[in-house]
Design a protein around this nucleic acid. Structure first.
Length: 664
DNA sequence: TAGAGATTAGTTTTT
DNA sequence: CTAATCTCTA
């Protein structure tokens, strides 16, 4: 955006001494306002290290840092800014206040896969789905700052009761493991600040101005943390859009937006309504759609940009036909308009919807970048290595102990582990600690015992140096000692082993760099890894690729040309949301999708869809009927099966010719 | 203990 | 119809 700031934007930037709420419509230059404001604050002599900006995703944080660096060319200043996600900021607090919170320095951060078996056991269930739903409920309680006792009192169904009972035990288990979960990174600082005025004052003094992005997505715990951090007189800037609140399922509540004017009577509210992104037609459809939602703040987007092309609405026989049609159209469009692949995005409701599009894109060797999906840190090989790191940092981390002990195999199996577990329980110690208990000798053969002791000695050896020596050296040593690469080659076929070995190498190289750049030791790096979902610097590997993304992951992004797919009842709006009567949030999700598009927008839906192997009829989404009909152009009726397969063949032939042209 | 086959359950978004 | 988990055998 090369325009100067508009009046509202300027006002938001210059209002620096008071609490401020910026209601920033989609595409209204929100990020620009935030970065300009940071620059403005620095210009007014505010110490950069006391400016704190909080986002929800790592991606947003990284972007904001980049933009701030551009805005603040003065060297060294931008790097002093504190720009992080809510959770990383919480981690910083927990880390610095670990002792007060009863945690050791190397405490572990459990991810949902560590937690599931714990909750399953506490809830006395072997049913994974049930365990997950209990885990889910516990998380909801934590996000709403509900204590186990209160949860127990309020539980209304059998399921809730079981979850509430497991909740207290789960808390104890985390304490025993010296571990925290994601929700604790917010809830623990809140609990600390609730009770400790000194700590509160200390942290407040570190913040001269607090900026929060995507404020509408804060949950109860986050709002309370926010209030503790700004106290009574720290000025802040909250930026958000009630029409883009799409994280209600994660405990986010628009109450926090409504509460702000109440809790801060001197609050200034500035609306950004000029849109710099989309055509008139796209905006008119988005406005029409969102007009069906109740309004918290009155707001209407307008633009000076072109009228634009009508939005295309295309039916398809099924999801495969839809994918084929979208890809064909995309290629034809690219050829006609001489665009780049990265100008296109295909957006959908759920991750599983990506598959037919991946298949169709791959069939034409079109590079694509898929957001969401499995992140590097969820891959088995990375989790294996991280288990070692966690155990090195924290010997009480039993889940990490179990994983590290078994990968690579070192002749210790289920039976030994079971004995170890019994001893640990009897002695009130961790699995690691149980290895050194005398009574283990009676149950476990000496060969296994030797393996266990060697394992623990190795871990201890690295632990003693973890805080002093460079992380890179220790990582190399660890990998050599456990011979992880050898294990991969001996258990997997060559291709697989190579791929995994490569990703381990990437991971280690990245950690090493990170350790050097930020001066972090192995313990701190290990904690950071738990919060990162995407490997930085991975994106530029595919400089020109079609973007596949869920609507949630697409928030904050924009694309010249967007395909919004799977617009069916039961998909968008999602069945569960329909049943729960939560259509408003689905509508906002659709709104987010529409407002990602700059120039053209193509909407599609399927007549049938495969569900558990069977074809099911689908109805077009009700949201289609809520758009500005004069801005839509409906394509033909859905193709019959025969027509579809025929079209597929002729289409493919045409496509091959097109592709040859495009390739030049 | 580890890999290959059988069985069974699955439908939402993520720090 | 997958994909992941479980069970059985070497």
């Amino acid at each position: 955006m090369q325009f100067p700031l508009n009046a509202a934007q300027r006002e938001a930037v210059q209002c620096d001494g008071a609490p401020l709420l910026v209601l920033a419509g989609a595409g209204s230059g929100k990020t620009r306002v935030i970065t300009a404001k940071i620059a403005h604050l620095c210009g007014r002599g505010v110490d950069a290290s006391r400016i704190v900006a909080i986002t929800f995703t790592n991606k947003a944080a990284r972007e904001m840092r980049e933009r701030a660096e551009q805005a603040l060319r003065a060297d060294g200043v931008a790097s002093k800014l504190s720009i992080s996600t809510f959770h990383s900021f919480g981690l910083r607090i927990v880390r610095e206040e670990a002792t007060a919170l009863g945690l050791k320095r190397g405490f572990s951060i459990f991810d949902p896969s560590d937690i599931e078996p714990i909750v399953a056991e506490l809830g006395a269930t072997a049913d994974r789905a049930r365990a997950r739903s209990m885990q889910w409920k516990i998380s909801q309680w934590k996000n709403a700052l509900v204590e186990p006792s209160a949860a127990l009192a309020s539980a209304s169904s059998d399921d809730e009761l079981a979850a509430a009972r497991a909740y207290a035990g789960y808390r104890d288990a985390l304490a025993a493991y010296q571990a925290v979960d994601f929700d604790d990174l917010i809830a623990l600082p809140v609990a600390l600040f609730d009770n400790d005025a000194d700590a509160r004052a200390r942290w407040q003094a570190r913040i001269a101005h607090l900026l929060i992005d995507e404020y509408q997505d804060t949950n109860g715990a986050q709002y309370r943390l926010f209030r503790h951090l700004v106290g009574r007189d720290t000025p802040f800037t909250a930026v958000g859009d009630d029409d883009q609140a799409i994280y209600g399922w994660r405990g986010a509540t628009l109450d926090n937006l409504a509460a702000l004017p109440r809790d801060y009577p001197e609050l200034r509210v500035i609306k950004l309504e000029q849109n710099y992104r989309s055509t008139v037609r796209i905006l008119r459809c988005a406005n029409a759609l969102i007009g069906n939602n109740p309004k918290l703040f009155d707001k209407r987007l307008w633009t000076e940009l072109a009228h634009g092309e009508p939005l295309r609405v295309a039916p398809a026989a099924d999801e495969e036909a839809e994918a084929v049609a979208v890809v064909r159209r995309l290629l034809a469009h690219k050829f006609e308009r001489r665009t780049k692949l990265s100008d296109y995005a295909i957006l959908y409701r759920g991750n599983h919807q990506a598959r037919p599009f991946e298949t169709a894109l791959r069939a034409h060797s079109i590079p694509y970048e898929i957001s969401g999906g499995q992140s590097l840190f969820e891959r088995t090989e990375i989790k294996d290595i991280v288990a070692y790191l966690r155990l090195i940092a924290n010997e009480d981390d039993d889940p990490a102990f179990v994983r590290a002990l078994q990968v690579p195999k070192r002749g210790v199996g289920q039976a030994t582990l079971a004995h170890l577990g019994r001893v640990a329980q009897a002695r009130h110690t961790s699995l690691f600690g149980a290895v050194f208990e005398a009574e283990l000798a009676s149950a476990v053969p000496s060969r296994q015992r030797a393996a266990l002791e060697a394992f623990c000695a190795m871990v201890n050896g690295i632990r003693h140096r973890a805080e002093r020596e460079p992380a890179g050296r220790l990582l190399d040593e660890l990998l050599r000692t456990i011979a992880y690469a050898d294990w991969l080659t001996s258990t997997l076929d060559k291709r697989d082993a190579q791929a995994r070995s490569q990703s381990v190498d990437d991971f280690v190289a990245w950690l090493t760099r990170k350790g050097e750049a930020d001066g972090k030791n192995l313990l701190e790096l290990t904690q950071m890894v738990a919060l990162i979902t995407m490997l930085e610097g991975r994106e530029q590997e595919r400089p020109d690729a079609v973007r596949l993304s869920t609507l949630h992951a697409a928030k904050g992004l924009e694309f010249p040309h967007v395909f919004l797919v799977g617009l069916e009842e039961g998909v968008l709006p999602h069945r569960e949301a329909i049943d729960a009567g939560n259509i408003d949030e689905e509508r906002r999700l659709m709104y987010v999708g529409l407002t990602r598009a700059q120039q053209t927008l193509s909407l599609s839906y399927c007549a049938t869809r495969k569900r558990a192997g069977e074809k099911v009829d689908c109805a077009p989404s009700r949201f289609l009927a809520e758009l500005a009909q004069e801005d839509l152009r409906y394509a033909d009726r859905p193709l019959s099966g025969d027509e579809a397969s025929q079209a597929k063949q002729t289409g493919n032939a045409r496509l091959a010719a097109l592709k040859a042209l495009v390739a030049r």
